[in-house]
């Protein structure tokens, strides 16, 4: 559990095109049969990759070593499995740039310190094309300035305001921040008729 402030992330990008990529595809359910998250990196997109017979973005040697996954719309929709961001993190990704994200997936990413930032449509397309043409380039996500910078230029990025503060202030580890409420938790509970007793 870290409290590291995450202000900037730089690295090479991997472009995974397509909308509505669900968490069952990110990590097939059979990999959830375990009581730890260990070894999940090997399962990342495994069925999609096998079906693509080497033509999947995660197997594309141009993107080897990439730490920023660039995706389309509604990425990570579906199941709440934290195994999905855990698998992508263990595969080597540290941040995600997309058109939009499934809400539970994005929340799970925040809890692991992995930013999910969104770009406007034309900016995202330009970034994807730029990285596809020049996969060796460095991409920078700046959560202070809220920009994504690549050879396609520097564009405005979006992230929910509370999430941004959690990441840049290093309070993305939820438990600690919530424990700070102290007795206010019991007080709030006591005001609820169903907790106090009808």
């Amino acid at each position: 559990m870290g409290q590291e402030a995450i202000e900037r992330i730089s690295g090479r990008g991997c472009v995974l095109r397509g909308d509505d990529i669900d968490t069952d595809r990110i990590i097939p359910a059979r990999f959830l049969k375990a009581i730890t998250f260990d070894g999940l990196g090997e399962g990342a997109f495994l069925d999609d990759r096998e079906a693509a017979k080497g033509n999947h973005a995660l197997d594309d040697e141009r993107f080897e070593g990439a730490s920023i996954l660039i995706v389309g719309g509604n990425f990570g929709c579906g199941s709440s499995r934290e195994h999905a961001p855990q698998a992508l993190m263990r595969f080597g990704f540290r941040a995600f740039i997309g058109a939009s994200f499934g809400e539970i997936f994005a929340g799970n990413c925040t809890a692991l310190g992995l930013p999910c930032v969104t770009l406007d449509g034309a900016d995202l397309e330009a970034l994807m094309e730029s990285v596809e043409l020049d996969p060796g380039q460095q991409i920078q996500i700046d959560l202070q300035e809220m920009t994504v910078t690549s050879r396609a230029g520097s564009v405005h990025a979006h992230i929910p305001p509370g999430t941004r503060i959690q990441l840049v202030e290093g309070t993305w580890d939820g438990t600690r921040a919530l424990l700070d409420a102290g007795d206010a938790i019991e007080e709030a509970a006591g005001r609820l008729p169903y907790v106090a007793g009808f």
Binding site: E82, H83, N108, L112, G174, T175, L178, A181, I185
Partner: peptide
């Protein structure tokens, strides 16, 4: 919720 949030709820009910 995800597993880290399950931890949060177990630890804080919040």
């Amino acid at each position: 919720i995800g597993t880290s949030q399950v931890r949060d709820v177990l630890a804080t009910q919040c």
